[in-house]
């Protein structure tokens, strides 16, 4: 059963990563085409100045969106490659940024801002990348539950005494938090996090200032 689940993950990762390569080609063509329009404008004398100004604005918009699309595609590509290996050597800074970047949209939908505070140096760990991404996601989901609309959550990466940690914390509450906290829902979310932390041999703790800390082993066991 476990083997089938793993194969499914690898399958989804491969298909998604391969599609991002096609998307990248689409952006490359749009970028070159807008570049050619720009070239034609600057190499041609008989285009009226007002038209040139308008076209330049349009081209800038296209370029901006190409960059945006390209960045998103890059994120999806990195995310999809997370399932390449069940256990992999990874930099903790990088894998946290991968999840935080991918969660920006979810946060934005709730007007929450996300801040990543990486460690000064890379922290290399051997871990199960997909499970670690899931654990981080559950932390964010748990904290987002306290922030129905607005607020700020930070993800801080540290390595005190060679114990790699990720701390997710609500940095600021919205002025009018609103919403209802349902204990059963919260406890369900916490159980999911604990379950996934078991797979990672990691430890998750929460304190009442609404801060979750995951402490990871440098190498996994089991």
């Amino acid at each position: 059963m476990k083997q089938l689940q793993d194969s499914k993950l690898v399958f989804f990762g491969k298909m998604t990563a391969s599609t991002t390569h096609e998307m990248k080609n689409v952006f490359a063509i749009i970028k070159e085409s807008s570049g050619l329009m720009e070239d034609i404008m600057s190499f041609t004398d008989d285009i009226p100045e007002t038209a040139k100004i308008k076209l330049a604005k349009i081209i800038d918009k296209i370029k901006g969106q190409v960059e945006r699309g390209n960045n998103l595609t890059q994120r999806i590509n990195r995310f999809a490659h997370s399932s390449d290996a069940l256990i992999a050597d990874t930099d903790l800074n990088e894998i946290v940024s991968r999840l935080v970047n991918m969660s920006e949209r979810l946060a934005k939908m709730k007007n929450i801002s996300l801040e990543l505070v990486p460690a000064a140096d890379p922290i290399m760990i051997t871990t199960k990348p997909v499970e670690l991404l899931m654990a981080q996601f559950y932390c964010l989901e748990y904290l987002f539950y306290f922030l129905p609309d607005g607020g700020k959550v930070s993800a801080t990466i540290k390595n005190p005494e060679s114990k790699p940690t990720i701390r997710f914390q609500i940095e600021s509450l919205p002025s009018n938090p609103g919403g209802k906290i349902d204990d059963a829902t919260l406890s369900g979310k916490w159980s999911e996090l604990e379950e996934i932390c078991k797979c990672l041999n990691a430890n998750a703790t929460v304190d009442d200032k609404l801060c979750i800390t995951i402490t990871l082993p440098v190498k996994p066991t089991g």
């Binding site: 080609n25 063509i29 070159e32 085409s33 070239d39 034609i40």
Partner: peptide, 15 residues
């Protein structure tokens, strides 16, 4: 292998 990409790039280099 991407026709549109390579032809556009060729045109830009030609300019």
């Amino acid at each position: 292998d991407e026709d549109d990409f390579i032809n556009t790039l060729a045109e830009r280099l030609e300019l």
